[in-house]
Structure formats: structure tokens, C-alpha cells
């Protein structure tokens, strides 16, 4: 079950936060900002911590060419805790989508894939209803009712 959704702009600022269920603690606006900032920082550091053994064995992939900051595909992807799981999906433009769900059951990798699918759908909605909205100012908090409704529909349909 999906608990909440966060969207972060490329500089780690929180531009959207919506609780979709009430299974977890309600945080203040300030706490949401801190959480977003922390995840933004940890995302980058986590990729720096990649063990040398993996770096050696992995084939040089597309991401190693060019130094586009946003192209970082080895950053933080998921967090497992007793009470919830969090999934992070970063687009090529550096926007991050964070999904907080109930704790993963069973295989963590397939749980991660499922979550990424949902996040990609949300990304599509973001592109459709936020980016295409002429009244939305880039990098600013998203206040678009239609987007809210679409997200709610998507979550309901899952």
C-alpha cells in the first residue's frame, strides 16, 4: 500500500508532497523539507560508496561516459525499514520521485521493480499534467489540482 509521494527538484528542493494514506506519522512541512534534503544528499553519497569489487567487475556502461550529474544511475534506490519501504527514482533531468510504501514483502528486488513501475507512471503524469501546464513555474512547488486527482486515481487503481 502506498503511503506517500514526494517530488524533489534537481537541487533537492521539495516541490510536491502528498500523503496518500495515513499509516505513518504525520510530519510537519519543515520535517518534509529536511527529509527531502537528506535523501538528496544521501542519494549522491550512496553511489560514492559503491564497493571497489563491484566497480571492477561491472562492465563500463553508458553511465560512465560523460559527466552529466543527472546521469547518476547508481545512487540510492530503496530503503527498507520495519515499518515502511522507500523507493527513489531519479529521472535523467535530475528530478527525484520518492514513494513511501508499506514494508516490502518477499523479494526485495522485485519489490523495487514494481515500485519503479509505479514511479515511472507518476513521472508520466508529472510530464503530462505539470510540465504541460502553462501556469506551472519550473522548480517551484506543484499546486495543480488535476495532477493531484490523477495521482489519486493511479494509486486507487493499483
Amino acid at each position: 500500500m502506498i503511503q506517500s509521494l514526494f517530488i524533489l527538484n534537481r537541487s533537492g528542493g521539495l516541490i510536491y508532497q502528498h500523503d496518500l494514506n495515513d499509516g505513518l506519522n504525520k510530519l510537519s512541512a519543515n520535517e518534509h523539507l529536511i527529509l527531502a534534503g537528506t535523501i538528496h544528499g544521501v542519494f549522491a553519497i550512496a553511489s560514492k560508496l559503491t564497493p571497489t569489487a563491484v566497480k571492477v567487475s561491472a562492465q563500463p556502461r553508458a553511465q560512465s561516459q560523460g559527466s552529466a550529474v543527472n546521469g547518476n544511475t547508481s545512487g540510492l534506490k530503496s530503503i527498507e525499514t520495519d515499518k515502511f519501504s522507500m523507493y527513489i527514482f531519479q529521472t535523467l533531468t535530475g528530478v527525484k520521485f520518492l514513494l513511501v510504501t508499506d514494508p516490502a514483502q518477499g523479494d526485495l528486488n522485485s519489490g523495487c521493480d514494481t515500485a519503479e513501475n509505479v514511479l515511472r507512471k507518476i513521472y508520466a503524469l508529472y510530464a503530462d499534467y505539470v510540465m504541460k501546464n502553462p501556469f506551472y513555474e519550473i522548480d517551484m512547488p506543484i499546486r495543480v489540482d488535476l495532477f493531484d486527482r490523477k495521482i489519486a486515481e493511479l494509486v486507487k487503481a493499483l
Partner: peptide, 13 residues
């Protein structure tokens, strides 16, 4: 609540 693990595309902690 306790943190159990986190993962990137390359490894799990």
C-alpha cells in the same frame, strides 16, 4: 522503527 537496509543499483547495505 528500525532501518534494515538500503540499496542502490549496485549494492545493498
Amino acid at each position: 522503527n528500525t532501518l534494515n537496509s538500503f540499496a542502490t543499483a549496485k549494492y545493498r547495505a
